[in-house]
Simulated assay, not measured.
Amino acid sequence: MSATAIGIDIGGTFTKIVVLDGDGAVVHRERMPTDPGTASRLPGDVGRAIERIESAFGATDAIGIACPGLVRRQGDAVHWMRGRLDVLEGLDWTRALDRRAPVRVINDAQAALAGECAIGAGRGCRDVVLITIGTGVGGAIMCDGRVLSGHVGRAGHLGHIALQVPGDKDIVNTPGSLEDAIGNCTIAARTGGRFTTTADLVAAHRQGDVDATRAWEKSVMLLGAGLASIVNAVDPARIILGGGIATHAGDALLVPLRHWMDEFEWRPCGTGVEIVIATLGEEAGAIGAAAHAREQIT
């Protein structure tokens, strides 16, 4: 069996690897721990994983890498990455893996959107926005079938739009950002220290805790305002909600969010933008990286 494409998603805790066949189906998956203290060994670890895969599935020129940070326009490396994996900043993956064909690098959120649009919740749609809600809030934008990266790779960082001005600045200096309104990174501050995880907040909300409901519904209201603004800016047909918070909350998120979209969204054609939950889970980035690499050589 020939491996049409290999996708590698490098995360702060685990690196996920998938193999896609000619129909885009996942035929192999594995993951390995990502130890920030030894991140410099990642190219070697990834290279050995590719060797094992190619010995089993056949050689391929379609290899994609998804990782955090801003990717060079050439798509060969990340030119800005801060945090636990900054040792990978500027790394040319084609050279590091000693590959003849270019290894295609893509931002992890953009890769997740590409994956969802290939075989997940965005399939069949050419104008899509992905919002990932977890520790922080990430995102990606597809317009007319193309995932946007922008001038320096910042396109789609939708967690860093301003909702409340004046407001405290987030990690990229945005005041009152969407990320700080609903990301897990601010849950203690938003609940007076009562909750340390959004999962606990949502559980208390479901059990009828009035204070928890008030805090959660305020966050969802701000998310609705943010999404309505995003709709006006890029006009998607579908919004996909991914990340741990969206997946865990389910209807506790979707029901109030749709109420606020009814309040805030401009609907010149009478119907609102479709809002769905992502379906590919933690493999979305690796699948998208593989799909992206395959597109570049076809």
Rank of each mutant, 00 (worst) to 15 (best):
M1V: 03
A3W: 05
T4R: 08
D9E: 00
G12M: 00
F14A: 06
K16F: 00
K16V: 01
I17H: 00
V27R: 05
V27I: 11
R31L: 03
M32C: 06
R41Y: 08
G44K: 03
R48L: 14
A49H: 13
I53V: 08
I53C: 06
A56D: 15
A62K: 15
A62V: 10
I65Q: 07
I65T: 12
P68G: 06
G69K: 09
R73F: 14
V78A: 13
M81E: 07
L85T: 03
D86I: 05
V87E: 12
L88K: 04
E89M: 10
D92V: 03
L97K: 12
P102C: 10
A111T: 02
L113K: 02
R126P: 00
D127K: 00
L130Q: 02
T132L: 01
T132A: 02
V137H: 05
G139V: 04
A140P: 04
I141F: 02
M142V: 05
R146S: 11
L163R: 08
Q164A: 12
Q164D: 14
K169N: 10
D170T: 04
T174P: 03
T174M: 12
A181K: 08
I182M: 02
I187H: 11
A188S: 14
A188Y: 07
T198D: 11
A199H: 12
A199R: 15
V202C: 14
A204M: 10
A204L: 08
Q207A: 15
W216C: 14
E217I: 15
G226N: 02
L227M: 14
V231I: 13
N232E: 08
N232Q: 09
R238T: 05
L241P: 01
H248W: 13
G250H: 04
R258I: 04
W260C: 06
W260L: 00
F264I: 02
R267T: 08
C269M: 04
C269V: 09
G285K: 06
Q296A: 15
I297L: 13
